[in-house]
Amino acid sequence: MEIIKTGVAGTLESCDASVSVEEHGLLELVIESADSRFAPRVREAALAALAELGVRAARVTVREKSALDCTIRARVMTACLRAAGLEKAPWEALK
């Protein structure tokens, strides 16, 4: 999936994550976690979502407020689809 503009999704409410995805030459992922002990889990969830969508080059920032993995995944995917200018998700490719 090619990132062609900046896409943001989510909020900074409790249990949510605010994700921004921008054009970038490499894949760069920044995690700002409400609880640092979960930062590795958040990173794993975000990387898995990016891999599932085939995003290989982007600057991705995830600021989260105790969001669960499924929320991280949803917000990362929404931001990516918005940044790729796609209205339809590749459902058949998603697990």
């Binding site: 989510g10 995944r73 949803a74 917000r75 995917m77 918005r82 209205e87």
Partner: peptide
């Protein structure tokens, strides 16, 4: 609409 759809989809997949 897209965000809500993905959130419910993702939650249903894993919860």
């Amino acid at each position: 609409k897209d965000a809500a759809r993905l959130l419910v989809w993702s939650s249903l997949r894993s919860t």
